[in-house]
Every structure is written in structure tokens, then in C-alpha cells.
């Protein structure tokens, strides 16, 4: 395999594009300049760090080190999910609902893929385990964040209807079902769109990366299809679990709607 190495200058020129965008009048007026620059900086710093971490990790493929990195990735994604909620759950549950859901779905799907499908020796070989988990976690995080945000917003807006249904003797599962369906739809539409548009409208990043690195296109496509299906499975399971956990938390044992468990609108 052969590929053209990128120089620091190449990256700096690409960075100038982001800086230029941040300087544009409308972008500044929308108050996005700072966010854009901070996010750009985070991309550069975080990816550089993970590059060196992976390099070090490939040297000693210990399960402990892989598990440690996975735990850090999960903790950060739990934090990110909470940060993206307009009205998330208060307290521990603000992290917990999303965190548990992502742990259950991303980790189980990754381990399943590594053991049953990829079959590397050993199964936690970092070259496969970390990229797979990263892609699953990143996408599951999106689904979970969108699903939870929609659920809590929707429950807040429909609180009168939810309470009216409780008053008429419906159990909480029925009273919130409409909002749960909306939340699940919000969480799953991005991956459904991505699968539908793959190869026609968009060429997915992983596949293009492999091709540019010199991999045979058909082999790269096979990996991409595998990843897409895993992401769909992980995102679906993760969003389902998060929406269920969060909506359970919106009610108590006497089927009362407990909206004071949501944070105030930020």
C-alpha cells in the first residue's frame, strides 16, 4: 500500500479555511465564530493526541490499555450527550441515561463485531477495536443525544396531554408513547439517511480514507457496509435504551409526571 504523506503546511492551509469562515460577517453575527474556532482547535488537538495514543497502543496490545481508552471515550461521550440537551435530566441521570445506553449498545456491538465478524487475533487488537468503537460511539452518541433532546423537549411541550392521559387512567408507558416515538425517529433518521445516500450522494469517510491509503475499492466498500450496519444497530439500540431510561425517569412509581427532574432551559 502506498499513499501521499501530508505536510504540516497542507494542514495549516486547510485550517486557514476554517479561520476565514470564522471571520465572515454573517458567521460572526450569528455568534458562531468562537464555537467554530474552538471546535476546530479541539479537532486538531484531540486527533493528534489520539494519533499518538494509538501509535503507542499498537506497540503493546494489552486488553487493559484498550479498555482504559474505551472507558475514557465513553465518559467523554456521556458528557457530550448531556451538553447537547436543552433540558436534560438533572443530576446523575443527565449523564447516566445516555452513558448507560451508549455503553450497552456501542460496547456490545463492537465486541460482537470484533469476535464474530472481524476475528482478529487477539479480538481486542487495537488497530481494529479502537477505530470500530470510535465510529460506533460517535454515531450512537448522535442518535442518543438527538433522541434524548427530543424526548425531554416533547414531554415538556406535551405535559398537559401527558397528565390528561394519566388522569384518565393510562399507565406512564402509554401516556409518553407518542413522545417516545418522536424521539426514536429523531435519533434514527440520520443513520437511515446516511445508509440511503451512501455511494449515491455521499462517499462515507472511512471508505474514502481506506481508498486514499491504497486499499482496493471493493475491500474498502465491504468494510464500509459492515460499519454502516453496525452503526445502524448500535445507534438504534442505544437510542431505544436511552429514550426508555429517560422516560422511565420522567415518572415515579405512582405514574406521576415528574418534570422537575428536568433542568431549566439553558
Amino acid at each position: 500500500m502506498s499513499f501521499i504523506h501530508l505536510s504540516t503546511t497542507d494542514l495549516a492551509i486547510a485550517a486557514a479555511l476554517v479561520a476565514l469562515l470564522a471571520l465572515l460577517g454573517p458567521v460572526r453575527a450569528a455568534g458562531l465564530s468562537r464555537q467554530l474556532l474552538v471546535a476546530g482547535l479541539r479537532t486538531a488537538v484531540q486527533l493528534t493526541i489520539i494519533g499518538y495514543v494509538l501509535k503507542a497502543l499498537f506497540g503493546h496490545a494489552g486488553l487493559l490499555w484498550v479498555a482504559l481508552l474505551a472507558a475514557v471515550m465513553l465518559a467523554v461521550s456521556g458528557y457530550e450527550v448531556r451538553a447537547r440537551q436543552e433540558r436534560g435530566l438533572r443530576g446523575w441521570w443527565g449523564y447516566g441515561a445516555g452513558g448507560i445506553a451508549m455503553f450497552v449498545s456501542s460496547f456490545s456491538v463492537t465486541v460482537f463485531a470484533l469476535v464474530v465478524l472481524v476475528g482478529a487475533q487477539p479480538w481486542y487488537t487495537p488497530q481494529y477495536a479502537i477505530p470500530l468503537l470510535g465510529m460506533l460511539l460517535g454515531n450512537t452518541m448522535n442518535g442518543v443525544a438527538l433522541g434524548l433532546d427530543r424526548l425531554t423537549q416533547s414531554a415538556w411541550e406535551h405535559r398537559d396531554a401527558i397528565e390528561a392521559r394519566l388522569m384518565l387512567g393510562e399507565p406512564w408507558e402509554v401516556a409518553i408513547a407518542h413522545d417516545q416515538r418522536q424521539a426514536l425517529r429523531s435519533g434514527l433518521i440520520p443513520i437511515i439517511n446516511a445508509m440511503a445516500a451512501a455511494g449515491v450522494v455521499s462517499l462515507p469517510g472511512m471508505m474514502t480514507g481506506q481508498i486514499m491509503a491504497g486499499a482496493p475499492p471493493v475491500e474498502a466498500v465491504k468494510y464500509q457496509v459492515l460499519i454502516m450496519f453496525l452503526i445502524a444497530g448500535g445507534t438504534g439500540l442505544g437510542t431505544l435504551a436511552a429514550v426508555w431510561l429517560a422516560s422511565r425517569r420522567l415518572f415515579d412509581h405512582r405514574h406521576r409526571l415528574r418534570l422537575e427532574r428536568l433542568r431549566d432551559r439553558r
Partner: peptide, 19 residues
């Protein structure tokens, strides 16, 4: 169970909600 209780002791609130 709370849902059954609310059918036995049913509330008509001042403002009705329809979905």
C-alpha cells in the same frame, strides 16, 4: 396500582386537554 386508582377516583380538571 396508580392508573387503576385514577379510574376509581377520577379527576375532571378545570382545563381539559385533547390530543
Amino acid at each position: 396500582e396508580a392508573p387503576r386508582w385514577r379510574r376509581l377516583a377520577a379527576l375532571l380538571p378545570a382545563e381539559s386537554t385533547w390530543w
